[in-house]
């Protein structure tokens, strides 16, 4: 057992005569609970086939952008026109962990690069649904969709451009 002591105000005087009248030492005992909850680590896995895909894009004489939302809706600005939309998808991830846990979502702060041989474009302004923070379901999962903006150069070279980007989730 581990006994330490505290005094009611640190004065040397003791109870003297009164203590000689006391019977056995006064003491009292009670109990308390101790509890801890081990939860599984949070995880994020990309859904198979659910990459961020801007589809067919036709460059022009001025720069432009193509935006794909987390709901996979595609629009363009500037000198870009939109081609075949069959392949357009938003990225999708399955987030897993403790039931009903909240978590933060961190998207890339800077641009990702997509390349086709020697040619490159950037993808930035990533958006997500949910955004900022998410909430796992009662069974500990949630789908996270991610969109972004493709920056297309003047007369961007033809090709199939690919690249990667990362998303981080953390309990909060």
């Amino acid at each position: 057992m581990n006994i330490k002591r505290f005094a009611v105000i640190t004065v040397a005087t003791s109870l003297l005569a009164a203590s000689s009248l006391s019977a056995a030492q006064n003491s009292a005992t009670t109990s308390a609970n101790a509890k801890a909850n081990i939860i599984s680590p949070i995880s994020i896995v990309k859904v198979v086939g659910a990459d961020l895909n801007f589809g067919d894009v036709v460059p022009g004489g001025t720069v432009g952008t193509v935006v794909v939302t987390p709901a996979a809706a595609r629009t363009s600005t500037g000198g870009v026109s939109l081609g075949n939309a069959a392949a357009v998808t938003a990225a999708a991830f399955t987030v897993g962990g403790a039931n009903n846990a909240t978590y933060t979502i961190t998207l890339p702060a800077g641009p990702a690069t997509v390349t086709a041989g020697a040619n490159t474009m950037t993808v930035d302004t990533f958006t997500s649904n949910p955004s900022g923070t998410g909430l796992l379901s009662g069974t500990g999962t949630q789908t996270l969709n991610v969109g972004g903006t493709l920056n297309v150069g003047v007369n961007q070279a033809v090709g199939a451009y690919t690249g990667t980007f990362s998303v981080t989730v953390a309990y909060n």
């Binding site: 006064n26 109990s31 308390a32 101790a34 509890k35 801890a36 909850n37 939860i39 680590p41 846990a101």
Partner: peptide, 21 residues
């Protein structure tokens, strides 16, 4: 009664912990 009494008001709780491997 002039004896000592002790009553619990809060339990010890370490809350949620992620098993770290």
């Amino acid at each position: 009664t002039n004896g000592i009494a002790v009553a619990r008001t809060k339990d010890l709780d370490f809350a949620n912990i992620v098993a770290g491997g």
